[in-house]
Simulated scan of single mutants.
Amino acid sequence: MSYLRLSLAALVPVLLSGCAQVYVGNHLLKKADSAECAAEGYLKVGNPYIVDGVRYVPMNESLGYSEKGIASWYGQDFHGKVSANGECYNMYAFTAAHKSLPLPTIARVTNLENGKSVVVKVNDRGPFVRGRIIDLSYAAAQSLDMVRFGTAPVLVEAIGGPHHQRGGYKGGYFNAAEDMKKNDIRAERLASVGVGGGAEEESLAPLPKGDQHRSVQPPKPAVSLPKPPEYEDRVFTDTKPLKKTFVYVQIGAYSSEANATEQMKKLAETFDTAALSQFEAGGKQLLRVRAGPFHSVADADAALQKAISAGFTEAQLKVDD
């Protein structure tokens, strides 16, 4: 699967984080006249928001979050633009975008194909592409050896941050305003493109200072990375065979065997690998309906689009290792 550059006339405007942005390909492009970056960023959970017709509900807490899926990355197209928590996006810093984790969240991301891990600060929203669970900065993607492939199957684990406690952030002091500030080199502010409009918004609150809720921090920004590939030279999905992970297209999980069997039969009309498998979630036994595994991430991406076109509009990519 490939992502094409779109003309400005084809861009769909949305508004997030109080600054105008437009959805295109993997990301939201920020307007050039948006507010200047905040030096320290903001504590943020935010209201539910809608992108491309899909509603996302931010989490109040990061404690216990762990998910496997496909990671992508973003680089110089967004370098210097305002991220969702108000900071400048710096492609050489170890950061990431996530659709629902509270901001900031400290997370460990592990490439399940090669075992490499990196600690990142989640300070942005995205990626708003089906089949992706996290968007990594260029530096983080380089650490996982995924820039040349475009994507990678990963495990994302929340490990710290002001919201990493039962019930989420409860006020008081949090030292990340200082620790994160000294680790983040202010990115060069670059010109950007976009169109106005939209009315979905998330609220921001100043990040308090102090030394309570100390947590692990991401590494300091990289200083010796090669220049990232130009947009037109980038690879957006990995075509090489998967060796250690299995990627499936899942259309749903059901408590009723009859419902699951009916959906599996419908899925079998499109995929001859359609099957049921049992798993436990929240103390309940459920049956998931899925097809695969697929040879590569690129094959899984194509299968996901095929499933959506066949009417399975809630289909997702799921990763096992």
Rank of each mutant, 00 (worst) to 15 (best):
K181A: 10
Y74S: 07
P208S: 14
E202M: 11
L136T: 11
E178L: 13
K31I: 00
P226N: 09
E61H: 07
S203Q: 14
V247D: 15
L43T: 13
V51R: 01
M91I: 02
G196Q: 08
K266I: 06
R290M: 09
M91Q: 07
V193K: 15
I70W: 13
P13N: 05
I106K: 10
G161L: 02
K99M: 12
N259C: 05
L101C: 06
E188P: 14
A310T: 03
M1I: 07
M1V: 12
D299S: 03
G196F: 13
R290E: 09
V216D: 09
R189Q: 10
P293S: 12
V289I: 06
G46I: 11
L11Q: 04
F174K: 06
R166L: 09
P48W: 02
V147C: 01
N123W: 05
D211V: 03
N111E: 04
P102F: 04
L155H: 11
P127W: 13
N183G: 15
A84S: 14
K182N: 01
M146H: 05
T237W: 02
K227F: 00
V45F: 06
E314T: 08
P104N: 06
Y23H: 11
G41W: 08
H213N: 13
G282D: 08
Q250Y: 02
I185T: 11
S7F: 07
P208V: 10
E157T: 12
L103T: 01
P162K: 04
L287D: 06
V22C: 12
A310W: 05
D124E: 05
A274M: 00
S83K: 05
R148F: 06
H164P: 00
T151V: 02
D301N: 03
P226K: 14
P162C: 07
E178G: 10
S192H: 10
S203M: 14
F246A: 15
L242W: 01
R5L: 08
M180K: 10
R290Y: 10
A176Q: 12
K121V: 12
F246M: 15
P206W: 07
M264L: 02
G311H: 10
F312C: 05
V54A: 13
H295L: 01
E178S: 13
S256Q: 08
A191E: 13
N259M: 13
L136D: 13
V235F: 02
F279L: 15
A205N: 12
A71Y: 15
C19P: 00
G161T: 05
V14T: 03
Q217L: 06
L103I: 00
K68T: 08
S34G: 12
F271E: 05
R108L: 01
R125F: 02
K266M: 00
E67D: 04
